[in-house]
Simulated assay, not measured.
Amino acid sequence: MFQEMRYRGPSLDELHENYAKQHRIDEDAVIRSAHEVVVNAPVERVWALLADPTGWSAFDPAIHDVHVAGDGTAAVDTRFTWVNGRAKIASRFAVVEPTREITWTGTAMGSRAAHRHLLTPREDGTTFLRTEESMAGTLLGLVYNKAKLHAELTRWLDSIKTAAERS
């Protein structure tokens, strides 16, 4: 248990380049979770929501103060900051493959995370949306755990699903 609490994971640069850009999260991280939903909307609509961080607060009220570097477009290595609840997060896009995958890495309160979203269009016009995330940081387990992360991922995908389906 103590060794799990001490696991820091890879450096942020390594997590970004050798994990997230390689379409993976840190499977050794103690805190990781995944969730998936079927969205009754075309993949292009779901993608449009995910690829516009400045619009996230419109469907997820926990998210605010989003600032994207450059022209505000999601692109590989573009940095962005945002607040989710009370946590201020500094992030960087690692994978931006329109209508297929969007992944970013980020840091908050000494933790490092990799967060992937995989979109799969289905024959009936709906979208299968899967997310997975890993978080690591010394003593992170004292204030955060798998159950909290899973609840957050569930809330996030439910928000995306609701927004895409009402558009």
Rank of each mutant, 00 (worst) to 15 (best):
A90H: 15
M109K: 09
T138L: 14
E97P: 01
L118N: 02
T78S: 07
V83Q: 09
A114G: 12
T131Y: 05
L119R: 00
S91E: 07
A113N: 08
P121F: 01
L118K: 06
S134C: 12
M135L: 09
R92M: 09
R112W: 00
D124I: 04
K88M: 13
A108M: 15
T99G: 05
G85E: 04
G125P: 15
S111P: 07
S111W: 03
V96H: 02
R130A: 13
G125V: 10
A136K: 00
S91Y: 02
T127F: 00
T127L: 03
T120V: 14
L118G: 14
T131G: 08
L118S: 12
R79F: 13
G125M: 12
T81Q: 10
E123F: 08
R79P: 11
F80Y: 12
T105Y: 12
E97R: 11
R92I: 14
T103E: 01
T78E: 05
F128M: 09
R122T: 11
T99C: 15
T103Y: 01
M135V: 15
T99S: 05
L118Q: 11
T103C: 13
R112G: 01
D124H: 04
R92D: 12
A94F: 03
I89P: 02
G106P: 02
M135G: 03
T127P: 02
N84M: 11
E133T: 10
E123C: 05
A114Y: 08
H117D: 02
G137A: 08
I89T: 07
R92P: 07
A136G: 12
E123Y: 10
F128R: 15
F128D: 09
A90W: 06
N84A: 15
L129M: 03
A136R: 02
T78I: 04
T107F: 05
A90T: 15
R100N: 11
F128L: 13
R100C: 03
E132V: 08
R92G: 12
T99V: 15
H115G: 08
S111K: 02
I89Y: 02
G110H: 00
E132Q: 14
R112P: 01
R100L: 11
K88D: 07
L119I: 03
T138Y: 15
W82C: 08
V96W: 04
R100M: 06
T107G: 07
R92L: 13
R86N: 15
V95K: 00
R116T: 11
A114R: 01
R112A: 01
T103P: 07
P121D: 05
M135W: 04
I102C: 00
L118C: 06
T103W: 00
F93I: 08
W82Q: 10
V95T: 13
E132L: 06
A90L: 12
E123S: 10
E123G: 15
E133K: 13
I89V: 10
H117M: 05
G85W: 07
A108I: 12
R122C: 13
A136D: 00
W104K: 00
T131P: 05
H115P: 03
W104I: 00
T107M: 03
E132Y: 13
G106C: 12
A136M: 14
A114I: 09
E101Q: 14
A87E: 06
L119W: 00
L129V: 09
T105Q: 03
H115N: 14
T131L: 02
R86P: 06
A114H: 08
M135D: 07
R86V: 13
E97F: 08
T81G: 08
